[in-house]
Design a protein around this nucleic acid. Structure first.
Lengths: 249, 249
DNA sequence: TTCGTCCGATTGTCGGACAATATTTTCAGT
DNA sequence: ACTGAAAATATTGTCCGACAATCGGACGAA
């Protein structure tokens, strides 16, 4: 038999409160930095109990739309990269995405990133990148140090690109790819020198403002990563392991 | 003067509750689909008041880590694309990113997407894409219909790629780029035919499994979009407008 | 000015209560 | 013994009132 009516679903009040506040923020009537108002005021405006208001606020708090400052007062907040990025990486782990999926996405995102970086890299950032390369050369035998410097290097490239959309897309993939670098460096002897050389070529491309070279070395660098990953005995089509997220928060 | 001490920050109990549950989920001790348990049980386990437990649960609810089903009971959830994607686009709007940033990111992400789609597109999806193209041809004079079909087309390409990381990165950029298509089509006469032709070439590349052609037409298609955007009198370096999010939820 | 002290305002937490609804159990009728 | 209705129970959503901890500001003393 065909049901005539769809099920009635009454939205709980705390959710309505959250949605109302969210609408005001997204619509631009309340801007980041504005005070949200005290709980007592919200109670009066919404006509519900303080507990209900508080539950509604908690819904928004996690997403970064409202912030508590030192005085525990509530302000309209601006969801920021790192917060969203860690959420995203966690979601990717829970979805059990494979390394192949990560690799393909990283290739596209990093290619776009290096192109933007070639266009807009400042002398300061290039200096920082060169300093990073110098430190990498010094500690080339230490897999832990090299993989940390590698993560920093790509983070600097991301900053050089001056593109927040790319930054937001880059960080989650990066933070899942990065932990494997150490494993690879331990197993594959020529990994560290090749990594160092690729980084040198990156910086060189940035200095010469050569997009084609940038693209080329992104491909090579990620290709190295993928091959090293396989040579370390891992399967590209396996889900990424949730262990990689343990030491992040 | 150098501050000697970092600020002391005591974490409220409701947040500790949320973090404890979150840790268990991320660590894999509780899996998506498991029941979270009743509030009374959580009260006993955490040794705090029910209000506190409820506030903690609300923190996780919004992110999709816990779900309420029809019976209002709580289950461990799996954060899903569309949920995360809409929150991402919202964040991008609030950050007031520019169209140039969107364009650069879309170029990288869509290039990677088409490459994956060329590798893995199924006959069913290709058929759906062809049907989409046919409908586009029929309604070529109607900007609203064409822009809707354009959005559907790219969504299908995303599905064809079978890559969840790319899908997650693609959707937010797409959902911000899409609303401008209609504006462009109204102002630029040759826009619709060019869009249609590009879509045809996409499908053609998929059928011939030709990555190079796929990349080429992504570049051309997005280039058309950018030029149309400028010809419609818009500035690439202006922040995207929050109006574009009004009719989404 | 700078330092205590007080006071009101606000948040975090608690305990209890009740209505609405979902689930489980009981039980009558076959 | 099985089925289906009715009652009992469990659980969530919402409300109320309360209190300690803390913050911001005012006020006055050194």
């Amino acid at each position: 038999m065909q049901p005539r009516f769809s099920r009635v679903a009454s939205t709980p009040a705390y959710q309505l409160v959250a949605e109302a506040i969210e609408r005001e923020i997204v619509a631009g009537h309340m801007r980041p930095g504005d005070p949200l108002g005290t709980e007592a005021e919200l109670v009066k405006q919404f006509g519900v109990n303080r507990s209900t208001v508080r539950e509604g606020i908690r819904l928004l708090e996690q997403g970064g739309l409202v912030r508590r400052d030192s005085s525990r007062r509530l302000w309209i907040g601006l969801p920021h990269y790192d917060r969203l990025a860690t959420r995203l990486s966690r979601a990717l782990v829970l979805q059990e995405v494979t390394f192949r999926e990560l690799y393909e996405a990283a290739l596209g995102i990093q290619t776009a990133t290096i192109e933007a970086a070639v266009e807009r890299a400042t002398p300061e950032l290039i200096a920082q990148l060169e300093e990073n390369v110098a430190r990498t050369e010094e500690t080339l035998a230490d897999p832990v140090a090299v993989s940390e410097l590698d993560a920093e290097f790509h983070s600097l490239i991301g900053r050089a690109a001056q593109n927040r959309v790319l930054q937001l897309a880059r960080e989650p993939t990066e933070s899942l790819v990065a932990p494997t670098t150490e494993i690879i460096l331990r197993k594959v002897k020529e990994g560290a020198p090749r990594l160092l050389h690729a980084h040198r070529m990156y910086v060189d491309a940035l200095k010469r403002r050569d997009k084609e070279a940038g693209r080329l070395w992104v491909r090579r660098h990620l290709n190295d990563w993928r091959k090293g990953f396989e040579r370390a005995g891992r399967d590209l089509d396996q889900p990424i392991d949730r262990i990689y997220l343990q030491n992040r928060q």
